[in-house]
Simulated scan of single mutants.
Amino acid sequence: MEKKSYTFEEIKQKLVNYCVYQDRCHSEVEQKMRDFLLIPEAKDEIFLYLIKENYLNEERFTRSYIRGKFYIKHWGRNKIRINLKQKGITEKLIAKSMNEIDEQDYLDSVNKIYHDYYSKQKGLKDYQKKSKTIKHLMSKGYEYDLIMEVSDVG
């Protein structure tokens, strides 16, 4: 199937719409640009336009991503950090943006997930339930030390 060809302005507008629909990071926009056959100069021009007009803002993207993954998906900081790094976000920006997660909310979340998951484990010995629950929380990206604190409280 041959690709439909668009004018430069049409492509630019499509990328604006892509960024308006939801916050994007640079690597997502780069990926999207690959759908269009653009010369490097055209890509650069569109990139600069998106940044200048604030359609593309890496910090805003990072902050919104952190909020969404924690408050909606209940991911821990480790999983959020790994996924942001895969999107090309710098460690410095990730660290700077982690304050989007309220510390008390984070502790409450670890506690709630721990106890909910633990209580759903049926027909197992306590140490097995604890072990499965710790693994579950680690897979969600929570820090081992913090999980251990919660599990010791019981």
Results as ranks from 00 to 15, higher is better:
S64L: 12
L15D: 04
Q13C: 04
I51N: 04
R24V: 08
D108M: 13
E2W: 04
H26F: 14
I89E: 01
Y55H: 12
F70Y: 06
V29Q: 00
D35A: 12
G88R: 09
N78P: 00
Q104S: 11
Y21V: 09
S97V: 06
T7W: 09
Q13V: 05
Y127Q: 12
N99G: 08
K92P: 01
D102L: 02
H74Y: 14
K85D: 08
D35T: 13
I113G: 01
E28W: 02
T90I: 07
K12Y: 04
K140I: 03
Y142T: 00
R63W: 07
N17P: 00
G141D: 03
S119T: 14
L93N: 01
F61R: 01
E41A: 11
S109I: 02
L15R: 01
S119G: 12
R77W: 02
Y118Q: 11
I39M: 07
L137E: 02
M1G: 15
K4G: 11
N99H: 15
F36H: 04
F36P: 03
K140P: 00
K125W: 11
E143S: 10
D152F: 10
L38R: 06
I11E: 05
P40S: 09
N17Q: 09
I46W: 03
I82C: 07
S64Q: 15
I46Q: 03
S151R: 03
N54Y: 12
I11T: 13
C25G: 11
Y21E: 11
H136P: 01
T62Q: 07
G76Q: 01
K43D: 01
Y55F: 15
K87M: 13
R77Y: 05
